[in-house]
Amino acid sequence: MKITIAAVGKLKEKYLKEAISEYSKRLSRFSEVEIIEVDDEYAPDTLSEAQESQVKKKEADKLLKRVKQGSYVILLDLAGEQTTSSGLSGKIENIMLSGNSHITFIIGGSLGLDQSLINIADYRLCLSKMTFPHQLARVILMEQVYRAFKIIKNETYHK
């Protein structure tokens, strides 16, 4: 199994980089892990609707270039399905059982998602209705994917 996380923006904070590194290490016994960071587009505080759409489109194009054909695409989306940790575990297990060996999680930029990302998603996942910085969402996602594999393997961690 291969897990790819493709995200807009680069992690800058040391503590977030360390958390990602730790979960990558933990996940490595279950799956190959690849983290892809694409540059975010400059977006001043005041953008017209057309400018905002253009920024989202440029970021989406960068992400779409990095999605491998045949990968099962899970898009992090506020309009996506909310699930439990066990529910995500079941989803990942079903993807594996269906013969797909590569899952790509996509995290868009701070302005949201371009329709082109929504169109290619096999599944849309909402981590929470609360707002998190995109960098922190990566850490939360990594922890939940790790938890999902621990649940699949019936190993203690999830209580």
Results as ranks from 00 to 15, higher is better:
Asp40Phe: 01
Asp40Glu: 11
Asp40Ile: 03
Glu41His: 07
Tyr42Ala: 08
Ala43Tyr: 00
Pro44Phe: 00
Asp45Val: 02
Asp45His: 00
Leu47Lys: 04
Leu47Gln: 09
Ser48Asp: 04
Ser48Thr: 14
Glu49Asn: 08
Glu49Trp: 13
Glu52Ala: 14
Ser53Gly: 12
Ser53Asp: 09
Gln54Ile: 11
Lys56Pro: 11
Lys56Val: 05
Lys56His: 14
Lys57Thr: 06
Lys58Thr: 12
Glu59Thr: 09
Glu59His: 07
Glu59Cys: 11
Lys62Glu: 15
Lys62Asn: 13
Lys62Tyr: 07
Leu64Met: 12
Arg66Met: 13
Arg66Tyr: 13
Arg66Pro: 11
Arg66Trp: 07
Val67His: 10
Lys68Pro: 13
Lys68Thr: 15
Lys68Val: 15
Ser71His: 12
Tyr72Cys: 12
Ile74Cys: 07
Ile74Asp: 11
Ile74Leu: 11
Ile74Met: 09
Ile74Gln: 07
Leu75Thr: 12
Leu75Tyr: 10
Leu76Ile: 15
Leu76Asn: 14
Asp77Trp: 07
Asp77Val: 11
Asp77Glu: 15
Ala79Pro: 05
Ala79Gly: 11
Ala79Leu: 06
Gly80Met: 04
Gly80Ala: 09
Glu81Phe: 01
Glu81Ser: 04
Gln82Ser: 08
Gln82Glu: 09
Thr83Gly: 03
Thr83Phe: 01
Thr84Ala: 05
Thr84Val: 06
Thr84Arg: 05
Ser85Thr: 14
Ser86Phe: 10
Ser86Cys: 06
Gly87Phe: 05
Leu88Lys: 01
Ser89Arg: 01
Gly90Leu: 14
Lys91Ser: 01
Lys91Glu: 03
Lys91Phe: 02
Leu97Gly: 09
Ser98Glu: 15
Ser98Val: 02
Ser98Cys: 05
Asn100Lys: 10
Asn100Phe: 11
Ser101Asp: 12
Ser101Leu: 11
Thr104Phe: 05
Thr104Trp: 04
Thr104Ile: 11
Thr104Asn: 04
Phe105Glu: 15
Phe105Asn: 13
Ile106Leu: 13
Ile106Cys: 11
Ile107Arg: 10
Gly108Val: 15
Gly108Tyr: 13
Gly109Glu: 13
Gly109Leu: 02
Gly109Arg: 04
Gly109Trp: 01
Ser110Asp: 05
Gly112Ala: 06
Leu113Val: 09
Leu113His: 10
Leu113Phe: 06
Asp114Ser: 09
Asp114Tyr: 02
Asp114Asn: 15
Gln115Asp: 14
Ser116Gln: 08
Ser116Pro: 00
Ile118Tyr: 07
Asn119Thr: 04
Ile120Val: 10
Asp122Ile: 06
Asp122Gln: 04
Asp122Glu: 06
Tyr123Cys: 01
Tyr123Trp: 00
Arg124Gly: 03
Cys126His: 01
Leu127Gly: 02
Ser128Leu: 00
Ser128His: 01
Ser128Glu: 00
Ser128Ala: 02
Lys129Cys: 02
Thr131Ala: 01
Thr131Trp: 00
Phe132Ser: 14
Pro133Met: 04
Gln135Glu: 08
